[in-house]
Design a protein around this nucleic acid. Structure first.
Length: 429
RNA sequence: GGGGAGAUACCCAAGUGGCCAACGGGGGCAGACUGUAAAUCUGUUGUCUUACGACUUCGUAGGUUCGAAUCCUGCUCUCCCCA
């Protein structure tokens, strides 16, 4: 068979390998193997925190193997205790269905699905759990694993003090059975996941072994954290989602562009599919001239393009140029209304009646009463005194009055507080 | 059950009758610097109007006083020690 790069070796240099069961390397070298990763359908969209797992599948496929994406329609109903200090809320079926559909669509942007021998496949564990009764489960599955074994898992041990429901305690068995089922029905022999999933995955390999299914392997990736130790994939405004409706492509692009130097290099290895030489050349270039931020730019462009497409990337680049570049008022004036709305999507906006603007509006009122951009007039005055407010890119003082002559594109006024906070005033009526 | 300590702004924490919108630190925001970074420095950080002003705020409800975060009483909550 045509064999791509060595998967384990690939993970290793990319910094994606945390742990693996003995023998996987050989196992993967000697044939095309089916490997799976489970995704929790807790939301309608995946976020960049899931991206590491997605990349595992991407690299897996690139290396000539067959990735299986499992959405946990059943496991999502139970709740994984790993890394959670408290019992989780359960999702209802309708929500789960919607979430699963959303996730499927997103995964398709990364890996190639189809019916060919090397194509990725998508499965939902609800399909094999929905008709399984409790008695059958505890007879066929539960019989093979001891409670002692289950209690030894970190995810369970940590919760023994504070309490864990039987439901969450059972989680590992449910996930373990997934693996067992995929093993016997599809011939899946590899399960991957974040290092926090090690316990759950090995319950699966154990189950397969005890149920006489033979060999099954586990591979985990390190959990990605930022250099300050905080969780990766959160911006000040919360989770960074892959769904453009939740995180605009512009914000998405900015998230990657703003990664710290050290992280950016790490991310470049993890989140691009570029070969080693290209990655290393970029990093070397970055070290020579860090202020150019070649790594961040390359990273942000590549990921944004993959997630949102060429068009959206271009818009994000344009927006960034206008917001952070040296775009002049003239440049702003040339934008079409459509462009305005696209660029400033996600930026606080306010509608102001044309009549009020014709009479002229003082800065303090514009920032508070009309725009509600700042919480109080005192704060607005302070900001104006601090010289931090700009109208259409020009600093404004407290006595500045805006009127229709300030309109750009006939319709918009751009306010800024400091360098990074934008507010858009739209005229209506 | 007995005894003690405490509750102050986003967080920590000073303040024990007027000079308290309340020291200081953290955090936030902004300015300078810079790489849309980090570090650093500076300013700012209850609300409202025409700000030399007014109003609301120191757990909660009352009271004493010309005047209270500060004193008194009830209540709620937190912590500690002894049993």
């Amino acid at each position: 068979m045509e064999q791509g790069p060595d998967f384990i070796e690939e993970l290793r240099w990319r910094g994606l390998l945390h742990d693996h069961t003995p023998g996987v390397e050989e196992h993967l070298r000697t044939g095309r193997r089916l490997g799976y990763i489970g995704f929790d359908p807790t939301a309608e969209s995946l976020h960049v925190g899931n991206l590491v797992q997605i990349m595992l599948l991407v690299h897996y496929q690139r290396c000539g193997h067959v990735p299986i994406a499992l959405v946990g329609g059943a496991t999502g109903m139970v709740g994984d205790p790993s890394g959670k200090s408290e019992e989780r809320n359960l999702l209802d079926e309708a929500t789960l269905d919607r979430n699963i559909a959303g996730i499927k669509a997103q995964l398709a942007r990364f890996i190639h699905f189809g019916d060919g021998p090397a194509d990725a496949r998508m499965v939902n564990n609800y399909d094999w759990f929905k008709d399984m009764g409790f008695l059958r489960f505890i007879r066929d599955v539960g019989k093979h694993i001891t409670v002692n074994y289950m209690m030894a898992k970190d995810s369970v041990k940590k919760r023994l003090e504070t309490g864990i429901s039987f439901t969450e305690f059972s989680y590992q068995l449910v996930q373990g059975f997934d693996y067992q089922w995929l093993h016997t029905h599809l011939g899946v022999t590899v399960q991957m996941g974040g290092s926090d999933q090690w316990g759950n995955i090995t319950t699966g390999t154990e189950l397969i072994r005890r149920m006489g299914g033979g060999e099954a392997f586990a591979i985990t990736s390190p959990l990605l954290t930022k250099s300050d130790g905080s969780k990766f994939g959160k911006s000040e405004s919360g989770n960074v989602w892959l769904d453009a409706k939740r995180t605009s492509p512009y914000r998405f692009y900015q998230f990657w562009l703003n990664t710290a130097d050290e992280e950016a290099c790490k991310c470049l290895r993890i989140f691009t599919t570029w070969e080693k030489e290209r990655v290393e050349a970029l990093i070397a270039e970055h070290l020579k001239a860090p202020h150019l931020r070649a790594v961040q730019k390359a990273l942000a462009e590549d990921i944004t393009k993959r997630v949102h497409g060429e068009e959206e990337l271009r818009a994000a680049l344009q927006a960034s140029e206008i917001l952070f570049g040296n775009a002049s008022v003239e440049a702003l004036g040339t934008l079409t209304e459509q462009q305005w709305l696209e660029i400033f999507e996600g930026v606080p906006q306010a509608d102001v009646p044309r009549g009020a603007l014709e009479q002229g509006i003082g800065m303090v009122d514009l920032l508070t009463d009309h725009g509600a951009f700042l919480p109080s007039k005192g704060e607005a005055r302070r900001a104006l005194k601090e010289n931090s407010i700009a109208v259409n890119k020009a600093k404004a003082g407290e006595d500045r009055v805006v009127n229709t002559s300030d309109l750009l594109g006939g319709k918009f006024i751009l306010l800024q507080r400091g360098r990074k906070n934008y507010y858009l005033v739209k005229v209506v009526g």
